[in-house]
Design a binder for these strands. Sequence first.
DNA 1: TATGAATGAGGGTTCATTCAT
DNA 2: CATGAATGAACCCTCATTCAT
Lengths: 201, 201, 201, 201
Amino acid sequence: MGKLDANKKKKRESLLNTAFNIFTSKGVSQTSISEIVKNAGVAKGTFYLYFKDKYDIKNKLVAHKSNKLFMNAITELEKHKGLDYHERFIVVIDNIINQFNENKSLLQFIAKNLSWGIFKNSITSNESDNDLNFKEIYNTIIDESPKKLKDPEIMLFMIVELVSSAVYSPILYNEPVSIEELKPHLYNAVKSIIRQHECDE
Amino acid sequence: MGKLDANKKKKRESLLNTAFNIFTSKGVSQTSISEIVKNAGVAKGTFYLYFKDKYDIKNKLVAHKSNKLFMNAITELEKHKGLDYHERFIVVIDNIINQFNENKSLLQFIAKNLSWGIFKNSITSNESDNDLNFKEIYNTIIDESPKKLKDPEIMLFMIVELVSSAVYSPILYNEPVSIEELKPHLYNAVKSIIRQHECDE
Amino acid sequence: MGKLDANKKKKRESLLNTAFNIFTSKGVSQTSISEIVKNAGVAKGTFYLYFKDKYDIKNKLVAHKSNKLFMNAITELEKHKGLDYHERFIVVIDNIINQFNENKSLLQFIAKNLSWGIFKNSITSNESDNDLNFKEIYNTIIDESPKKLKDPEIMLFMIVELVSSAVYSPILYNEPVSIEELKPHLYNAVKSIIRQHECDE
Amino acid sequence: MGKLDANKKKKRESLLNTAFNIFTSKGVSQTSISEIVKNAGVAKGTFYLYFKDKYDIKNKLVAHKSNKLFMNAITELEKHKGLDYHERFIVVIDNIINQFNENKSLLQFIAKNLSWGIFKNSITSNESDNDLNFKEIYNTIIDESPKKLKDPEIMLFMIVELVSSAVYSPILYNEPVSIEELKPHLYNAVKSIIRQHECDE
DNA sequence: TATGAATGAGGGTTCATTCAT
DNA sequence: CATGAATGAACCCTCATTCAT
């Protein structure tokens, strides 16, 4: 890679990082492109060499950040091969919650976009950025189950919605309880949702 | 009430109704005050006699609309005195879901604000608008239970989050399934969350 | 008319006059709205209260200025009731040429728009600004002729094109001759065009 | 000519052709250099190796295109040696009109610049492009006349202005009549202008 | 109270031009 | 010669807010 290409990459990265920081600190709609470029240390016109507009950079950030989020969770999962199905489920959820807990601005940024929409988009979209194959993950989760699952998609949907929605307030405001206090209840709820979708033989 | 007062009230109502319609059709951040007053048929300056800015009117609308939402659900609940505790819970949830289903722009408008935040705000805030006493409702729900509940607030929190999050996509996009298909699964999940919080004697 | 309305009119006039001056001194496409409002002594936003964009104000100026041009010529014509048809024709043309000669920036501004296009637009358009009825003038010119005219519209078209095109360079640059030197030749040419369209009986 | 020189010439030609196409399709002021180079398939910096700015390339195009226009007309004229003076005049005019009629974007592009200005510029300027000697043509036209002409320059001026102005609307919009309907009237007008400048002996 | 003309800061975007490669 | 990434001034336009009426 030549010096020029490296420089281009640096500029793009700088814009992405700066945009992420400002987006998380004051919201996307309150952020202006002027502010992004000023903080990124590039000229206004440069922004338009890399992104179409504010929403283009936002979408690329959402895709990029959530991709990393799931990648990390999958990596963690591979360390727990021995666990049973229900527990492996919890490992993934727990890892994601912990990532959010350690990086609250990440939570704030993708909270509104996470949940089912992201699964859908991630599976269908084929961004070059997107090196994670959600379809495969999805199938792996479903197929791994030792018992046959009734309506596995609905089950997964409800779990994703419950978790993504319920972690927000505890992590950010300790309301109504801290995330650590919530965890056992939440994981019990998840397990009971799974159990309800398992066919009895 | 004098004629003048009536006129005042009419202007305020007109602004609120118009703002709600435009907010739901094109989003809050895309709506300008100019557009609201033009459609409401009042002068620009008049807006500032009743509201501080766009976000003031938005917040008042959220409070007002969600208040009405719960009022309707409580009214419905009173028609089902005979049912047992779990079923009465479902009656409330079902009623709210149905309201959203029949008024999708309402869902879109308060979806992002509903969930636990609204309970909290509604309980603490003392808007003159706000004639519903959430605290009382909350206590009623908890106390009504025949069995003693462990951590009733966490239970309620998880139910509110699960329901408010999970209805959005099915109602608006039939994704991953229609709201009618989702309902039985969702209500089972709710019931099992309740069951987990009931103390065995 | 109240003080407010008077003020509004003054602002609008100021914008029109300023725009005309800048347009004629450096061309429409080289003129920015910023420059117009700065010289007119009003705020940028004010421009948009009165005009849609730069081309809106340009069109209104063209219509307004050419209207005045023809009005003056017609007024002059009424002083020469006794003259014969050909001479009355020349009176109108001569008057318009003299107006241009005394107001060279006017010539520069509407030269590109004058000619047949303006007749057409003026006849069809119904601007409230436009208090001159071109259709009527056109008919008057045609009907006044003592001899029957063949293809009167084509005759008029050629005269308008010849005159509007031929005066530009002599008035502005004295090229290839001064306008006064050109006049006799031009008027002879006009008369011979008319003569060719008169039916011999 | 070396391969490199050929390549240079090719780039320049590509820029000229592309610019002409875009200029005629959307107007000079609406065309950006970015668009020209993108369509010409060269880099942005390359434009500045050949032309000073947008108006430089425009002027070179006008000179080039009108030069070709007259060259073609002269070539045609040489096929009609036997005709008399008036008819040879008409042959030139007719040929130019036909060229415009077959290439309407050419008309649109040079219409505003054609007329007397082009004669003047073409005679005086000594562009390397400009291999046609207008001065010579001009003299030939004047000298060819069998009768002595009064003020031949004014005569030529009026003819050029009349023709160049009158063909625009008929060719592009068939207004007020088609160019074919206009031709006989126009040629009669031209002939009568010539006749008026011929000295009777 | 109610009005709406006026404001001007600040938004997004374009583009001619430069210059290191 | 040729490139195209980078620049930043300048563009058009919107809009929340004010204030004289």
